[in-house]
Amino acid sequence: MKRIIPMWIAIIAGFAMMLSSFVPLAESAGEMFADVFNVVAAIAFVLGAGSLAKQHLEKLSRRDAGWGYSVITLGSFLITLFIGMLKIGIHPNPSFPQAAYSGSNDAEGSAWSWIYEYMITPLTSTMFALLAFFVASAAFRAFRAKNTEAILLLVTAFIVLLGRTFAGVVLTGWFPDWASGLRLENLSIYVMQVFNTAGNRAIMIGIALGVAATGLRILFGIDRSWLGGGDA
């Protein structure tokens, strides 16, 4: 029973949604679902926060190695939550001073924007910037002319890398006009518009069919592994 009902909920909801796309009166069902989903996801944050608190409190109470880091995580979590939920230090919006919570958390100079500017931004954008290092090491290691496929991969990357900087202009900019198509910057655009378009199109068509088949497996009740395991 615990598995049957969810399965039928999914099947009915799914088919209803599919049909709603074709019924002019129900076309906004998808948008409504987006709202409902966002609200459910926001409510479910309680579960995520609970899991986060639990894992770190357990580490703390067991005095696991590195429990000090759990203190940092928990402390920063609670402080940020407190400041943000209560809009600490946020003045009301000058247009609506009568509403105490009308001000935005993002106001310059607030504790919230301090956290954002001096903690979240540097931490996350530096994490993002690590990619520059990883692309270099990945290119060094993986781009070797082992076979035809690898050669195509690395030659294309080569053309685009050079074609998208001043180096391309210097190297091939002197090509005469009739051969301008071979200039690196034009070649890289040609590759983008022909080969890359073809590859991406096929991938997209394949994905559409894959999504349709995956969806139908769920809606026909053939694949129940998302409910866990094989058969009910």
């Binding site: 944050f45 986060l52 995580t73 920063s76 956290i115």
Partner: peptide, 29 residues
Amino acid sequence: YKIAESLVVGVSAAYWGVIGFWDTLVPKM
């Protein structure tokens, strides 16, 4: 790195929770 990691997890988890509350739950629900 571990300090930075612990901080970013704690702060950002709360950050998105707060965004969810003020930008989704309050205006929508």
